Amino acid sequence: MAHVLSFNDTYPKTPLLTRIVEGFAGWIDRYAENQPRMRGVRALQAMSDEQLAARGLKREQIVPHVFRTTF
């Protein structure tokens, strides 16, 4: 009895350097998105305009407000 194994690539291989760069870029993106300030920006952006007005903010002031100590 004979057994035959066949390996056919059904997708093109991505070059190693491209995979490394894409992996690093993905890591940077995940790191930046999980920072407390970015969570604060997303929380304020999720509020309605009335809720922002109650806090004394306009929508275009969200990022400067959250990052005010670093700018």
Rank of each mutant, 00 (worst) to 15 (best):
M1C: 12
M1D: 14
A2L: 12
A2M: 05
H3F: 13
V4R: 15
L5G: 05
S6V: 15
F7G: 03
F7K: 12
F7L: 15
F7H: 14
F7Y: 15
N8C: 00
N8I: 11
N8V: 12
D9C: 04
T10F: 06
P12L: 05
K13P: 02
T14G: 02
T14M: 14
T14P: 01
P15A: 13
L16N: 03
L16S: 07
L16E: 11
L17Y: 14
L17D: 15
L17K: 15
T18A: 13
R19S: 15
I20Q: 09
I20K: 08
I20T: 08
V21W: 10
V21P: 05
E22N: 14
E22C: 02
E22M: 10
G23I: 10
G23Q: 09
F24E: 09
A25F: 03
G26A: 08
W27I: 06
W27E: 12
W27T: 09
W27C: 03
I28G: 01
R30N: 06
R30H: 10
A32V: 12
A32Q: 10
E33K: 09
N34W: 01
N34Y: 01
P36N: 01
P36C: 02
R37F: 08
M38N: 08
G40P: 00
V41T: 04
A43K: 11
L44Y: 04
L44V: 03
L44F: 03
A46V: 08
A46K: 13
M47W: 04
D49P: 04
E50C: 00
E50A: 12
Q51A: 13
A53T: 08
A53I: 03
R55D: 01
R55H: 10
G56I: 06
G56Y: 07
L57Y: 02
R59S: 03
R59K: 11
R59F: 04
R59G: 01
E60H: 12
I62K: 09
I62N: 06
P64V: 06
P64G: 08
H65T: 04
H65C: 00
H65I: 00
V66C: 05
F67N: 02
F67D: 05
F67M: 09
F67H: 05
R68K: 15
R68Q: 15
R68N: 14
F71G: 09
F71K: 08
